[in-house]
Simulated assay, not measured.
Amino acid sequence: METFELIAFEMTYQHHTVQLSFTSAELVRVTEYGDRLWYVDINGVADRELLAWFGRSEDIGVELTAVAKSGQTFRGKGYFHPNEPHQAAAVRGDGELSEQ
């Protein structure tokens, strides 16, 4: 399991691109038996309207670009799961996460 502290997070959904403002976020990549699974935990999301929109939406698919504190950039597709009461969210990865 690898963990990356994120300093920037951008996502595109329904032809909208948003640079998400947050207090902390981490990307977790798990490799087991040759398969890779990944997710992002985001805390302190400032955009309450965005969280509310995803809370009401059935289309929660996003494309993301995340920049780690180490300078690595990650791109992938996933599903955005808001946690409105805690001003947080999680992105469950769907498929490959590319690293640059």
Rank of each mutant, 00 (worst) to 15 (best):
T73I: 03
R29W: 03
P85S: 04
E5W: 13
G71H: 00
M11S: 11
G71P: 02
F74W: 11
A89H: 11
I7G: 04
W38N: 14
F74H: 10
E58Y: 09
L27M: 03
H81D: 06
M11H: 08
E96N: 06
G55P: 00
D35T: 15
E96S: 08
H81F: 04
F9R: 09
T65P: 02
P85E: 05
I7K: 12
T17H: 11
R56S: 13
M1S: 10
E49M: 06
R75K: 12
L50R: 11
F80H: 04
G44Q: 10
V67T: 13
N43K: 10
G95M: 12
L97I: 14
P82R: 01
G76V: 02
M11K: 06
G78A: 03
N43G: 08
L6F: 13
S98K: 06
R29Q: 15
E5M: 09
G95F: 09
F9W: 14
G55R: 01
H15C: 11
L51G: 02
R92T: 10
F22P: 15
L97V: 12
E84Y: 01
E99Y: 07
I7R: 11
V67K: 10
Q14M: 14
N43D: 12
G71F: 00
E10R: 07
Y13I: 12
R36K: 11
T73A: 14
G93L: 08
V45M: 13
T3K: 12
A8R: 15
F9K: 08
T73D: 03
N83I: 07
G44Y: 12
V62P: 00
D94Q: 07
H86W: 03
G93T: 03
P85G: 02
S24A: 06
T65S: 10
K77S: 05
V91D: 09
L64R: 09
E49D: 10
Y79T: 07
H81Q: 06
Y33P: 01
E10V: 15
V91A: 05
E84L: 08
T12I: 08
V40K: 10
T12Y: 02
A68C: 00
K77G: 07
S98P: 02
F4E: 14
A89E: 06
D47F: 02
K69F: 07
L64I: 14
